[in-house]
Design a protein around this nucleic acid. Structure first.
Length: 208
DNA sequence: TGCCAGGCCCTCTTTAGGGCCTT
């Protein structure tokens, strides 16, 4: 089964286009529902963290001052992740920062993102909220650390992804859950999900 | 001057508006 890299950024705000920068990143390699690799680092981009984000994440300006330069960390994490397909919770957010920080070191993304939030909206429409923490609680996954720290969030997003993949195999009888299938599911209208998965499964069986 | 993220998704929709989710 393919390895996917689940990543999570902590940042100074919501938008790199508005000058926000990364302060921490984690990447968790997931294979067959098991974590087979971890990377985590704070990083110093030379910018000030607003106080409400210091409170939200627990990452202080003092911590960032002592952290390695952002360029070194981004080189390391992009080497660590290599060409593995990427996953994040609300991937449109992490994708923006991944692309922006890589561009600053003259690198570019080689692979696509899948989004655990879009998948959860389709596979767990009954959840009271699709925030990462609420979903972890809803399906009773272990809390691996403080929310809004990169490694804890990446690990919980990885275990949520593994749970969603199990759901596809169990409830929907999908025999092969690929990153490509996840990207297809996350875009399909909710009322067309059953149809989409049935069609996928028929194709898989026809090839065998 | 005044604006300030943006993509997804639902609905009292589609010539739009507002909540959710990420920090």
């Amino acid at each position: 089964m393919e390895i996917v890299a689940v990543i999570d950024f902590e940042t100074t705000g919501l938008s790199p286009a508005q000058g926000d920068r990364a302060t921490e990143i984690a990447a968790v390699l997931l294979q067959d529902g098991k974590v087979v690799g971890r990377y985590q680092s704070l990083m110093n981009a030379g910018v000030r963290i607003p106080s409400f984000i210091e409170e939200l994440t627990g990452i202080s300006n003092a911590m960032i001052r002592k952290a390695p330069p952002v360029a070194d960390v981004m080189r390391e994490v992009s080497d660590f992740v290599g060409g593995y397909p990427l996953v994040a919770h609300n991937a449109s957010f992490d994708c923006k920062f991944w692309d922006a920080e890589l561009a600053r070191i003259q690198r570019s993304r080689r692979q696509e993102f899948a989004c655990s939030m879009l998948l959860a909206r389709r596979l767990l429409p009954q959840a009271p909220s699709h925030k990462l923490g609420a979903l972890v609680q809803f399906v009773k996954l272990p809390i691996t650390g403080r929310y809004h720290r990169a490694l804890a969030d990446a690990e919980m997003a990885a275990s949520l992804l593994a749970w969603l993949e199990d759901e596809l195999r169990g409830r929907y009888k999908v025999s092969e859950v690929s990153h490509e299938l996840l990207r297809k599911i996350q875009k399909v209208p909710r009322n067309k999900l059953d149809q989409c998965l049935e069609r996928h499964q028929r194709k898989v069986l026809a090839v065998q």
